[in-house]
Design a protein around this nucleic acid. Structure first.
Lengths: 168, 168
DNA sequence: CTTGGAATGTCAACAAGACTGACATAAAAT
DNA sequence: ATTTTATGTCAGTCTTGTTGACATTCCAAG
């Protein structure tokens, strides 16, 4: 029986061995460690954790975002996020403002100090990403992004796509 | 002054905007969630966590490995690893044998039951990886691997390279 | 040979950051 | 007026990191 599957060219005749897949899996594991290593060091000095970084990143990306929106992006419970936001607000890194249209909502923005820390964290992360991108070259970068997008869950891919073309 | 840097072709004239780097960072974040989602579900049913998966993966990869070797791959403290190993050994998923040459060492292997669970976990992870690789195509996969390798810390890259060409 | 240090692994206690469940408040929607 | 939604909080649990203390084993220098 002849394989006639795959209307899209790339899907035909792609026999992936378990070995190839294993390498991809291990690459993902080891690379993620590098991905978080630099910000982690800064966070540790300041007494924060990765959870604080994630929250600050997406507040920076969508200033004025609500707690609920942040929850669906981060995929944690509100109790978990609340603890992190509490410390960031108490430390004056994040500002929480009651919504004008809907007074139940809290709109979150980074303060000046918050922007500074976020800048330090993302600078460190960008340095590594830039070095990796330069070493690998533009075509590799395109492939990198393609595979990662295909690896996301539906919900996450939606969030990613929505943010992707949003100006900073 | 003319830019003549970069003996390797790919390193010349690569101006990466913060926007491009940010997309890479967010892609990495969202994709890693997908990467772990499927095994996490199985682990949760069985009452284990991601740490157990990591330990089992690398024990499978290097049967008879010592605790110390596993430590340097996983990058955690021996006390942290010990707790995870303890439950795996007690549950008869991992066998720990005192070294013959050096009796301080413990040599770790997966039992039959351990191999079964590891198989279930890696199957789930491979399905997603295979789907992503198929969707993206072989050139994208090559780029994906290149960027990830460039993103690793030195230590991790060494571990990755050593494992990379080891038969399963 | 003995002894002291290094390597290895275990036990105990603690912290961060996930989780669930229960409940309060306020506002919006029906 | 009642229900639903958005948010916050309190209490308690779990996983998985951490450090500190300690036991065992090995090896090498005296």
């Amino acid at each position: 029986m002849v394989d006639t599957s795959g209307a899209q060219g790339n899907e035909t005749l792609l026999f992936l061995t378990d070995e190839q897949l294993r390498k991809g899996i291990e690459a993902m594991f080891f690379a993620y460690r590098g991905f978080t290593a630099d910000p982690d060091r800064i966070l540790d000095e300041k007494g924060y954790g990765r959870a604080h970084h994630r929250a600050m990143h997406f507040i920076k990306r969508t200033p004025g975002t609500t707690v609920n929106n942040l929850l669906s992006i981060l995929g944690v419970t509100k109790q978990s996020l609340n603890r992190v936001l509490r410390t960031l607000i108490d430390d004056r890194l994040v500002r929480s403002e009651v919504g004008t249209r809907d007074k139940r909502e809290r709109h979150l923005t980074l303060t000046e100090t918050g922007l500074e820390l976020e800048r330090a964290l993302s600078d460190a992360q960008r340095v590594r990403m830039r070095t990796a991108f330069r070493q690998a070259g533009p075509e590799a970068v395109a492939g990198f992004r393609q595979v990662l997008e295909a690896m996301m869950d539906g919900d996450m891919r939606r969030h990613y796509a929505r943010l992707k073309d949003t100006e900073v």
